[in-house]
Design a protein around this nucleic acid. Structure first.
Lengths: 252, 252
DNA sequence: CAAACATTTAATGTCTGACAATTGAAATCG
DNA sequence: CGATTTCAATTGTCAGACATTAAATGTTTG
């Protein structure tokens, strides 16, 4: 490994982590390559071992490296997999939405727009397991005893199956965050039996259209679902506003 | 802050980081709230200060907390902003593509599908600055002295402007990774003057359609651009194959 | 000779203790 | 009262040590 050079700003571990990260991104460190031991890195950078460790831990937190104990152990450049990266993206997306007070409308618009982009591919490439996953969730959503939270979780699972049906790992990864981050927002909505029935029917229509390879019909059903979800959210918003500041016009 | 409980699997700092992360995600720790000092955390969790530090650094690497030195310093729950989260998502997306040997076709398909989802909103909500950004990049792409890398960078900037024109921060964030991660893949393509002219013309058509509020026309131009880009990539692939294993049929 | 077992060894994981750097706030002085 | 100094709390960094792990190696035994 060629010598890495440090930046000049910020704290030591940050700069060391950045130097290694750059080496990985630019291909100077390749997958499964072993980094020098913590001791050696400490000497190379002229810092102590704890400082190097903090830098390595930052990278490990991003799944850029993995560490292994033992005689032949050390830090290795990690092959970043979609499976590893997705949970982190979901966490970040969820926090972005909750911390920045993104309104339900904006998040919903993004989600349905992105899902709509998947529909043509899903209709063309649908596989039995994706359709089965969608049907399973639809069935679950029809069970009477299901809690609102359970209903939302199943809804998310249905939409993830729809995205996965497009058969494009890049799409699945990029959309995982957008789909999952909706769950906390949807948990604020209550789903009475009538709303659930409507949603289940639309889910069924989408699954049918995908199974039939009819992208157009699926897009129509998806659009209807988007409208209905937005209307439900609007109901919640209106109710809350009225309860907060009741007005004669609203009461009449 | 209520006491946090640790999991039982894995290494200590990982478990501590997870406990704090959960507290943030579930809202038990709110934005700008100060965490106990490293010393106090160490006592609470029954570990040493370096162990706590590693946990905190993992969280800092994800921008979930920020630390501040001094008398009133400490670790604070960070308000995750789109601006902070985007670069990390871009790094991750870029590495995912390069490390998993995602073919140009798959990445390209994802990118154009996602951009297509933005077009209707961009056409409806376009703002002068987004259009200006698009025009600027188009002009830059027409300059004769521009390197291939510069051309790709400008292409990425153009597409980001297109996505931003949709006026939905969630879309902008989710798509930043997909758009930027294409750059290394596109850098493998050479863009002779004729290819550039074609691309610039299509970019112009997209900008015109967005400016006119004509989503349909923009989608048509975008689809043409997707086809043309795929064809260019196919050329590169074919040339490389022929050079690797020249055959009489390919030569004739 | 081969397989099971013990030993070695090199690396990370964790702890203890200390000092430096920073920064806000309190105390002090003009 | 305002400007300055001092102080105290906290993170940043260092040094050294021991614990733990797991592969490689050596040893014993069937």
């Amino acid at each position: 490994m060629q010598k890495l050079t440090l930046g000049t700003e910020g704290e030591l571990p940050v700069r060391i982590a950045q130097a290694i990260r750059d080496a990985i991104v630019e291909g100077r460190l390749i997958v499964d390559q072993r980094l020098p031991s913590e001791q050696e890195l400490a000497e190379q950078f002229g810092v102590s071992r704890p400082t190097v460790r903090e830098a390595l831990k930052r990278l490990a937190a991003q799944s850029l490296i993995r560490t292994q104990r033992g005689a032949t152990g050390g830090a290795f450049v990690n092959r970043l997999s979609f499976e590893e990266a997705a949970p982190q993206q979901i966490t970040t997306s969820t926090l972005l939405l909750s911390m920045n007070a993104v309104d339900f409308e904006t998040a919903c618009e993004a989600r349905y727009a992105l899902e709509r982009a998947c529909v043509p591919f899903a209709a063309a490439r649908r596989k039995p397991d994706h359709l089965a996953a969608m049907r399973t969730e639809i069935f679950r959503q029809g069970q009477p005893g299901l809690s609102d939270e359970g209903f939302c979780a199943s809804d998310v699972a249905f939409h993830r199956a729809l995205v996965d049906a497009a058969g494009n790992p890049v799409l699945s990864y990029q959309l995982a965050g957008a789909v999952e981050a909706m769950q906390p927002l949807m948990n604020m909505i209550t789903f009475p039996a009538r709303s659930r029935a409507r949603i289940v029917a639309l889910h069924g229509a989408i699954a049918d259209a995908i199974e039939a390879g009819d992208a157009g019909a699926a897009e129509v059903a998806l659009a209807a679902l988007a409208d209905y979800t937005a209307a439900l959210a609007e109901d919640v918003r209106r109710t809350r506003r009225e309860r907060a500041a009741p007005s004669p016009t609203a009461a009449g």
